[in-house]
Design a protein around this nucleic acid. Structure first.
Length: 434
RNA sequence: GUGGGUGUAGCUCAGCUGGUUAGAGCGCCUGACUGUGGAUCAGGAGGUUCGGGGGUUCAAAUCCCCUCACCCACCCCA
């Protein structure tokens, strides 16, 4: 009687063919962050529940994994709140501004949907700037994420941007009470999915006066080239401070992002973008690949000037973004752009017979010393099987040292792609397999 | 949480107006090829018998009920 091997929904095993591309991607990501001067940080998987709850919103609070094992503990839901906790906990250990990146798992108790890249456990990758309220910080975060996205295989991913205070201003004008803002935001956020008549009806059935809804619609349905759109809204609502402030800030950020060398058509002002998390206060942004609408957002973030204050007592501004690495991987896989290798080995050194093991092992050692990923076949099976092994794993070269080769002092090297084989020295192999 | 779909060999699936030993393709193993893969050809293994439980029937993978798992959509987001 055996136990059925199974996995909780939304959890995944990463088999070698997945892990090789995953690790490669992670190396690229980490390298990019360091190139921009960000410092790494790690925090525990488990936090006190009170640290996490009440920061994300009612909806999200329900998705926090509660640890039944000991009361008062929970699994982290994102990396932003832990960052806020850390900054408040060690006030003297960080420079200002503090730029950090963090790549760790987070857990969300929601319904998983693997093909859309939605999991209960997934790798989040956050970059944040703490301690600066300059629009340059917002712009840098956006520019960094757009550039990284391009490097990871999504050069055309569009980042939609909006501003919380602009949204709040619009709510004021539409006479929507502050406590219902978030609810309204969630509804209008669905604009591109449900369509305008869909959300119009949802708002009406939600009990909002038609007049309010109409006013709101007048604004959020506006679209157009970024600058024109902002000009238009500014012009029309020039008496609302929040709107004017939001627009001014947004304009600065957009300008700065282009100073970072980001093509302006990759950024799109979208007045219906709201983002579900409560803690955002200023710019908000979210990116997706237009060619894969079913995948969902690839990155998302914004400015959260009040979050750290909850822990530290004094207000410390911050802005950051999450890069959805697991989702990016899922999107690449979905698009068939993921090269799936199952090994990093470049040369398989076959073993002719027991007596020649030292020769084969010696060759592999020499190759490794030269930086060529190599492995020795571990048993004296037929060459046929050894070659077949190389073929299955996609190893590009196979080396054979038999009696003949040993006598001549050469190694037979077969190029598995072309099928050609020639006798070479170890040094020649190193050159070839590099 | 709500709605829909699927569940048969390792994988993708066919079989489903109920009827003898449940099939195909791919994969896997062996050999032709006794120092060499990927092609071809010839064999072969593999299903506790059709997710699990119950029911109808002389007889069920096939019909009915329940259950579980997975997938899709919604919700929400990375």
């Amino acid at each position: 009687m055996s136990i059925e091997p199974k996995l909780y929904r939304g959890m995944r095993d990463y088999l070698p063919q997945d892990m090789l591309s995953r690790e490669k991607m992670l190396e690229k990501v980490r390298e990019t962050f360091r190139r921009w001067g960000y410092a790494p940080l790690a925090t525990p998987a488990i936090e006190f529940k009170e640290i996490l709850t009440g920061k994300y919103g009612d909806m999200a609070d329900r998705l926090i994994y509660d640890l039944k094992h000991k009361s008062g503990l929970a699994l982290r839901y994102d990396l932003t709140v832990p960052l806020a906790r850390v900054v408040a906990m060690y006030p003297n250990d960080f420079p200002t501004p503090f730029k950090r990146y963090q790549i760790q798992e987070v857990w969300r108790a929601e319904r998983a949907q693997p093909r859309q890249g939605r999991f209960r456990e997934f790798l989040q990758c956050d970059v944040d700037i703490v301690g600066s309220d300059s629009p340059v910080a917002d712009a840098e975060i956006i520019a960094l994420s757009v550039q990284l996205l391009a490097e990871l295989g999504f050069p055309n991913a569009v980042t939609r941007v909006n501003h919380r205070s602009l949204l709040r201003g619009l709510m004021e004008i539409s006479k929507i009470p502050p406590e219902r803002e978030i609810e309204v935001c969630r509804i209008i956020d669905k604009l591109d999915k449900v369509g305008k008549t869909g959300i119009y009806e949802e708002l009406l059935t939600g009990g909002y006066p038609q007049k309010c809804v109409d006013t709101l619609f007048d604004i959020i349905l506006c679209s157009g080239e970024n600058r024109e759109l902002l000009d238009f809204v500014e012009d029309r609502y020039s008496d609302n401070e929040r709107i004017i402030g939001g627009i001014k800030n947004l304009r600065e950020v957009l300008k700065l992002v282009s100073d970072f060398g980001i093509p302006s058509d990759l950024l799109k002002v979208d007045l219906s973008l709201s983002r579900g998390l409560d803690y955002y206060t200023g710019t908000i942004f979210e990116s997706a690949n237009a060619e894969q609408p079913h995948i969902g957002s690839l990155t998302g973030g914004g400015r959260y000037d009040d979050l750290i204050g909850i822990f530290s007592g004094k207000q410390i501004p911050a802005v950051g973004i999450t890069i959805g690495l697991d989702r990016i991987l899922a999107a690449l896989k979905d698009a068939g752009k993921l090269e799936e290798r199952t090994t990093s080995t470049r040369v398989l050194v076959t073993v002719f017979d027991e007596k020649l093991f030292p020769d084969s092992i010696g060759l592999a050692t020499e190759l490794r010393k030269a930086g060529i990923p190599s492995e020795v076949y571990l048993e004296t099976r037929k060459l046929k099987q050894q070659f077949s092994y190389a073929d299955k794993l996609g190893i590009p070269f196979v080396a054979v040292i038999g009696e003949d080769e040993k006598k001549k002092g050469v190694i037979a090297l077969k190029d598995m792609k072309t099928g050609e084989q020639e006798n070479l020295t170890a040094r020649e192999i190193i050159e070839l397999a590099k």
